[in-house]
């Protein structure tokens, strides 16, 4: 099996609380992987370990055949591992365009007019080109989500981790983000979606992993995971357990 990103026996604790692991996860090229689980199940801790914001206490993370376990986040980003954040983190005080130029400064994507043309192309693809010169703090919630994705995309990643990219959005806006993520995936980017909006994850993912108290309790196709008694127990409680 061709594996792009491999997580092996990764563990993370905060003081006496074990937040994650040990977990094993493989992400394949161009895959659409959903990561679900109730609040506090370790989803964000796992992706923080993968993207380098948290150093794992144990385990190995291999990306494109290279051990990146101890690499800082900025180096992982340069290798093609991008992410968006649960709460949008725009670079306030900068325009929408400047937000995209920050990653481009470091990723060897060309300079000057070439760089700006590429940023414009990405802004057009996410529907933000009209807001190009506006300050990022003036964007709506949906636009902020799109900006997060655009900033991740401009680095031409091979894996994009979308951390609750649809949280707080209306149904129409969720469709908007979903179609954007589908288009990205079609262009060759493996997408890891962390989401609480179940119908969106089920629609989007080819494979789903469910975490509970830092451990994987189910993995498989959306229908397999939805039918899994452990997953139903975690989401609906003992009484609804079929």
């Amino acid at each position: 099996m061709n594996v792009l990103l491999s997580v092996r026996a990764v563990e993370k604790s905060f003081g006496a609380v074990r937040a994650l692991g040990p977990v094993d996860v493989d992400i394949r090229p161009r895959e659409r992987l959903g990561l679900i689980g109730p609040n506090g199940s370790g989803k964000t801790t796992l992706i923080n370990c993968i993207t380098g914001l948290f150093p794992p206490d144990a385990g190995v993370i291999v990306f494109k055949g290279i051990d990146i376990t101890h690499e800082p986040a900025y180096r992982r980003a340069r290798r093609g591992l991008s992410r968006s954040f649960q709460i949008p983190r725009p670079f306030v005080g900068m325009t929408v365009l400047e937000n995209l130029l920050v990653p481009m400064d470091y990723l060897g994507k060309g300079g000057g007019s070439e760089e700006i043309a590429r940023a414009d192309e990405v802004l057009a693809s996410v529907g933000l080109i009209a807001r190009r010169n506006d300050p990022s703090e003036a964007l709506s919630q949906l636009e902020l989500r799109k900006l997060e994705l655009a900033r991740a995309l401009v680095a031409e990643p091979e894996v994009l981790v979308a951390d609750e990219a649809m949280a707080g959005l209306s149904e129409g806006e969720i469709d908007d983000i979903l179609s954007l993520l589908f288009r990205l995936n079609e262009s060759g980017v493996a997408v890891v979606m962390i989401e609480h909006i179940m119908h969106a994850v089920m629609r989007f993912s080819e494979r789903i992993i469910c975490l509970e108290t830092g451990k994987i309790i189910a993995a498989g196709t959306p229908s397999e995971v939805a039918d899994n008694p452990l997953v139903q127990k975690v989401y609906f409680g003992e009484q609804n357990h079929r």
Partner: peptide
């Protein structure tokens, strides 16, 4: 310059800057 852009990104959100490829330290 790119240095100023990166410093402003650090000011706005250090984790987001780091995950955008900025060597923050």
């Amino acid at each position: 310059s790119w240095i100023g852009r990166s410093l402003r990104a650090i000011r706005a959100s250090e984790p987001a800057a780091e995950c955008s490829g900025v060597p923050t330290l």
